[in-house]
Simulated assay, not measured.
Amino acid sequence: MQITFLGASHGVPEANRRCSCTLIETNGRYYFIDMGVNAIDALRTRGIDVEDVKGIFITHMHGDHTNGLVSFVDLISWYFKTADPEICLPNLEGVEAIRAWLKANHCEMRDLRFKKVTDGTIFDDGYLKVIAIPTQHCPDSHAFFVEAEGKAVLFTGDLKHPNVDFPKIAKEKPTEFVICEAAHFPATDYAPVLSACPTKQVLVNHYAPWNIPNVMQLAETLAPLPVKFVNDGMQITL
């Protein structure tokens, strides 16, 4: 399993960081966690066939996590017509919103496989399994517990606060990484919950500039458990 962070910024693009988007590869199949960037640009740059994208999983319906989905659906509707990913949205009202936007741009959205994100296992194609855990960041927001090739990773998505809605599954099941956001509260607030997780490493993405010192303090608190910043283009092979 290979994880590539295409966007690791908070809600606003920074000079060297774009909005939230993560690409996962396993067995030549590709999947996205959130799509706040133009994902097809990223795929083409890397020489990846759009048809090899098998799943898209959106943690919640905020623009910095979804804006790239419109352009993705646009291009697979009229050009990459053999692409057939399952698109998992927290709110299916987004489907009609995308349809209307494409129509305004003289493009008819073709029939695609949209699915509502609900609590529990939302996807399992025999290569990648995704379990959705509800959070309280906003209506219908979720974290994702991802399993592939015998390994597991938790994406917290945006949270209300670690004391309130940090996914308990990360305390119960071993993970290679816990990937945490750090835009909405001091990163040091993660310390009690992360110290109880059987994980090998903590990765911090979706972080705001003001929270960088807190992330560094979190690293000191959790040592020797490694805590690292995520940057755009960072790639990890598990």
Rank of each mutant, 00 (worst) to 15 (best):
L6W: 12
G7E: 06
A8W: 01
P13T: 13
E14Q: 14
A15F: 07
A15Y: 08
A15I: 12
T22D: 10
T26D: 14
V37N: 11
N38C: 05
A39P: 05
K54A: 14
I56T: 02
T59Q: 11
M61I: 12
H62R: 05
D64E: 13
N67E: 15
V73E: 08
L75H: 12
L75N: 15
S77I: 02
W78C: 10
T82D: 15
D84M: 05
L89Y: 05
L92R: 13
V95L: 04
A97R: 06
W101S: 11
L102M: 09
L102Y: 05
H106Y: 10
E108R: 12
R113C: 06
D125G: 04
G126M: 07
Y127L: 07
Y127W: 07
A132F: 02
P134K: 02
Q136C: 10
H137P: 00
H137Q: 11
P139V: 01
S141D: 05
A143P: 06
F144W: 07
A148Q: 03
E149L: 06
A152H: 08
L154H: 01
F155S: 03
D158S: 15
K160D: 12
H161L: 00
H161S: 15
K171R: 12
K171V: 03
F177D: 12
V178Q: 04
H184T: 11
F185R: 09
P192F: 04
K200P: 00
Q201E: 15
P209S: 15
N211G: 08
I212D: 07
V227P: 01
F229T: 14
L238F: 15
